[in-house]
Each structure stands twice: as structure tokens, then as C-alpha cells.
Design a protein around this nucleic acid. Structure first.
Lengths: 202, 202
DNA sequence: ACCGGAAGCAAGTACCCACTTGCTTTCTTT
DNA sequence: AAAGAAAGCAAGTGGGTACTTGCTTCCGGT
């Protein structure tokens, strides 16, 4: 593998664990199995190495898609929530670190935001499509519901491990439950269950 | 004021800005208007100073109360959300920092969690009281809704400043909107509006 | 007037960090 | 085989950081 990429990957690992100040050039070089001098020859300085890392993270952020023409809201949204949650969980240490250091290193924080931001926009588009196709009766406060769903996914990914009991159990079932709650809030009737009790007919 | 408290307050300010590694004893001492040596004479080491800071934060965390006998859910919950949001917003830098450093300093992260945890429990109690008093028809997924409301308050407090557009505007109206969405989700019928137009203009 | 404790001050120690320099090794290309 | 580029290695520089030491100053109680 290119030495440049090896250093970048090592930097990502070290940064996720120790943050900006804790990511010493020595640590990164060791983690990459590379001489410290090579790091400086390749990137010039610690600052520009981590800047490259941030830029790379923002560029590589591929957010899962939601269908342009909704068919089965509950299933589609559950799957999407699961993907987004997986993405956020995978990067949670990196995200935690970079968002907490935004006062000192705004560039890194901004690039960390692009992923979640894109996801939020995709969700907003999907809800618009839902109403346009007559699948939702937007009686509630759609914008707020979107914020709340995104915040839930974000919070789950970032803080489940340090706040046991604050999130739905088991973790695997959480995305579907978030999706259902959200759909209720934006006025999408729950899909008929194929089994016996079809919830409360009320 | 006691010199000990002056140092602790300075440490809180510096820590919220710079995190653990960035909180140099020199910086804290300057901020407190105290000689650096005095800091070591008082606390022994940087580690135990910041441990005392964390302990103090956990002890001083006073979470707003929710009435034991609910009367006007929408108003009570809106007010409560506003208080919690204010509390979280006030401490957001401290919370961001300590939660992002939990791998290296778990003690600080734990103490940062006590506030939000207590709030979540208070909310759960309140919802139980709501159903017991016949004010809510718990048709939805109450636990998930509680998680989502807490995550929304948390996310709003922590990330509104760095993710513009991801949270309800204006900021002042957000807590009430979170509360309304939540009440809808747990099956509390919206309170009758005294004025004509109830919904927000699209 | 005197004593003791709390705080300030200046200096020093040992270590860590970003970054540089000068040189050697290794590998590829011609 | 010769040449050049890329990487390693050892050492060093200047500055920061946690923490210590030895001393002076200030202030309240007896």
C-alpha cells in the first residue's frame, strides 16, 4: 500500500483514540510502521497531516441512499436507519473527538459534520416524497421529527456505550424502533402486520 | 473566595476549552490568578485536581423536577425540556470534552453522564405517572420515545452551534416542539389551542 | 512582639513534542 | 553496472509540561 495511505490510516486510528493533542507524530509513525521522519517528508507537518485526514474523511463519507419513490416506508426507513447507525457507530470515536475539538480545530469538526448533514438532507427529501405520494398525512411537526430522528441515531451511535440503559435494547432492534416512532410522528399509518394481532385498531 | 474553589472554577473553564491534555497546570493557575505551585500544594497533582473537578460536577448536577402528579402535560413537559436544554447547553463544552475523552479518562466521562441519566429517569417516571392518571394512552413505544426525546435535547445542546439547519428554528421554540412531538408519540392528545391557527406555517 | 501557616516567587529537573539535519540503505530504472 | 529516488536511522534543537525545592513575604492569633 502507498505509504501515504498507511500513514493516513494510522493517523485515523490514533486520532480516534487520543484526539488532536494526543496524536503525537511518534505515535502515528509507530502505528503506521514508518519512520517518523518519513511522516514529515510526506506531509510537511502534523497540522497538514491531520488536515489531510479530515479532508479525506469528508470526501469518503458515503451516506446510505433512500429511494426516490417510496414504496414501503417502514421497511425502507428501518433499513436506512440501520445503515446510518452503522456508519455513525463505526466512526463514533473519530466523530466524538473532532466535534469536541471544534473550538481549537474547526476544520476537522466541519468535515466530521458532512456525513450527518447529508443524512439529514436525504431524510428530509424522503419525507417530502412520502407526502407527495400520499403515504403520509403531515399532521405533526415534520421538521422537528426529522431533527429528533437524526439526534436519536447520532446519540445512539455516540453514547450508547457510556450510558447503558439510556437507549432501546437490544441494540439491533433500535433502528427499527426509531423508524417506527418517527413514522408515527409524521402521520404515516403503521404497516399492517401479517400476523394475528394487528396492533390496536382504536 | 476559598483558593481551592477558585482553582476548581478556573480548571472547569480551561478544561471546557482545551480538554484534559490542553489543561496545563500553568494555564489553570493563571486563569485562577494563583501561583502554579499553590495549585500543586492544594491538589497534589494535575490528575487529582481534575478528578476533584469531575466529582464536583457530578455532585452539583441538579436536574429540573417534573411534577409527581401531572396536570398539564404539554406545559409541564415544555418547561422541563427548556430547563434541561438550558442545563445541557450551559455545560456543553465540558460535556463534549469529557465524553470524548472517556477512553483515556473514564472517571470524568462517568461523572458527566450523571446529569443526563437523572433527567432520563425523571422523564420515565413522569410518563408512568401520565399513564397511571389516564392522561396518556400508551399505544406507541414509550421507551423508545423517551430515548429519542433525551437524545434530541442532548443533540440540540451539544451540536446546534456546529450544525446549523439540523435543529428546529428558532432555538427558543425548540423545547416546546420536542415536547409536543414526544407527547404525540406516547399518545397524549394535543391540548386545545385557544387561538385560531394551530399548526406552524409550512 | 512573635510565631506559624498560607501564599508567592525563581529556579531547576526530567521528560515529551514537533521538527531538522546529515548520512546510509534499499530498490527501481535505465 | 550506474544513477536517482525513496525510505531508514541517529542525533540534535528549541520549546513545553508536570512537578520539586528553597526561599521570601504576608497576615492573623496569642
Amino acid at each position: 500500500m502507498e505509504i501515504r495511505d498507511r500513514i493516513l490510516e494510522a493517523a485515523a486510528r490514533v486520532y480516534a483514540l487520543h484526539g488532536y493533542r494526543g496524536s503525537t507524530t511518534r505515535l502515528i509513525a509507530n502505528e503506521a510502521g514508518v519512520n517518523e521522519v518519513t511522516l514529515f517528508r510526506t506531509f510537511g507537518s502534523k497540522d497538514s497531516l491531520l488536515e489531510a485526514l479530515a479532508r479525506g474523511h469528508a470526501d469518503a463519507a458515503e451516506v446510505p441512499e433512500l429511494p426516490a419513490i417510496p414504496k414501503h416506508p417502514e421497511r425502507e426507513l428501518s433499513d436506512w436507519c440501520r445503515s446510518v447507525l452503522a456508519y455513525l457507530t463505526q466512526h463514533r470515536s473519530f466523530l466524538r473527538k473532532s466535534m469536541s475539538e471544534m473550538e481549537e480545530h474547526p476544520v476537522v469538526a466541519e468535515s466530521a459534520c458532512t456525513g450527518p448533514n447529508c443524512a439529514g438532507q436525504a431524510l428530509a427529501r424522503y419525507v417530502r416524497a412520502l407526502t407527495e405520494h400520499g403515504l403520509a398525512r403531515p399532521e405533526g411537526d415534520t421538521d422537528t421529527a426529522i431533527s429528533m430522528l437524526m439526534a436519536s441515531l447520532f446519540g445512539d451511535a455516540m453514547y450508547r456505550d457510556m450510558m447503558p440503559g439510556a437507549f432501546p435494547e437490544p441494540a439491533g432492534a433500535a433502528p427499527a424502533r426509531y423508524a417506527c416512532c418517527f413514522l408515527r410522528a409524521v402521520g404515516v399509518p403503521p404497516a399492517p402486520r401479517r400476523r394475528k394481532s394487528t396492533a390496536s385498531p382504536a
